[in-house]
């Protein structure tokens, strides 16, 4: 192993730590400082603001739906991609990653073009059937699903590949049906990967901003999510509320990361 000399090591260490400190650690910690500058009152205050509470509830509802949908979709696709051969598999596995590099605004626009009640491709017919997608929660759930789509798949696929199909085949040879094999063998082996994926998707879903902004219409008290409230409050010069909600969001997302960081090493396969 290359041994770097002590000065070089210190230089590299300083660059790494300094960069991360200035860019991430310090700024993030300032949010906490701003929030609790005058004690807890500001932070507690957000829970008495009707619109903010509505936004938090909406955010939670949208995020949970998106995570559940992505969970079902993600696990299904992962198993299909790893365990089966079918034409078009390579293309599908590449397409799955698209949401990672598409701008949230473009995601919003794309959904708008198809599901907008007035001008979208499918929107008018869906609307005449009594459903509203855009400017309502279904659209927001779809936008959130879109941006968080690959996360669970990216956690589960490597684990499925790694464990191979020996255990599943052994179960089949011992008389287990497809369903029994999935529930008793496959699912327990990918359990932790699924949990990480869910936690990360939850963090991502709670924090989605651009795509939701486009499809929600941003109506205060009705389709405004927590991230949209941060923007609105900041621009209305209600900075303390903005910082308090931002702190709450930052706290939840960092908590998700810490949970994952703690879980992972113990259950590495």
């Amino acid at each position: 192993m290359v041994r770097v000399s002590t000065p070089v090591r210190w230089l590299l260490r300083t660059v790494a730590v300094g960069y991360v400190f200035l860019l991430v650690a310090w700024p993030v910690s300032l949010v906490a400082v701003q929030t609790f500058e005058d004690g807890f009152s500001n932070f507690v205050g957000i829970f008495s603001d009707e619109n903010t509470v509505a936004a938090l509830q909406l955010t939670l509802m949208v995020a949970l739906w998106a995570v559940v949908i992505n969970l079902i979709f993600g696990v299904t696709i992962s198993i299909l991609l790893v365990r089966y051969e079918f034409p078009g598999k390579r293309a599908l596995s590449a397409l799955i990653d698209i949401p990672l590099s598409v701008s949230p605004v473009v995601v919003g626009l794309a959904l708008l073009l198809v599901y907008s009640g007035r001008t979208g491709w499918f929107g008018p017919s869906i609307e005449s059937a009594g459903w509203q997608v855009i400017y309502d929660s279904p659209g927001m759930i779809m936008a959130t699903c879109f941006v968080a789509l690959p996360l669970i798949i990216r956690e589960v696929v490597p684990v499925l590949t790694e464990i191979g199909d020996d255990q599943e085949q052994a179960a089949r040879s011992l008389g287990a049906s497809g369903r029994q094999t999935f529930l008793r063998i496959t699912l327990p082996s990918i359990k932790w990967a699924v949990i990480y994926g869910v936690v990360l998707s939850l963090a991502r879903s709670l924090g989605e901003f651009g795509a939701v902004k486009v499809v929600s219409g941003n109506v205060t008290g009705r389709t405004q999510t927590a991230t949209l409230i941060v923007e609105a409050k900041y621009q209305n010069f209600e900075q303390t509320t903005a910082y308090s909600v931002a702190f709450l969001l930052a706290f939840v997302s960092i908590a998700c990361l810490v949970v994952v960081a703690f879980l992972r090493p113990q259950h590495e396969i």
């Binding site: 020996d166 255990q167 085949q169 179960a171 089949r172 040879s173 008389g175 049906s177 082996s189």
Partner: peptide, 20 residues
């Protein structure tokens, strides 16, 4: 017949133990 209906025992080279 699918494997689960054949009543055969199969032992795999790399054991295929149920790890959990």
């Amino acid at each position: 017949l699918p494997p689960q209906k054949r009543n055969v025992g199969f032992v795999f080279q790399h054991y295929a133990v149920f790890k959990h």
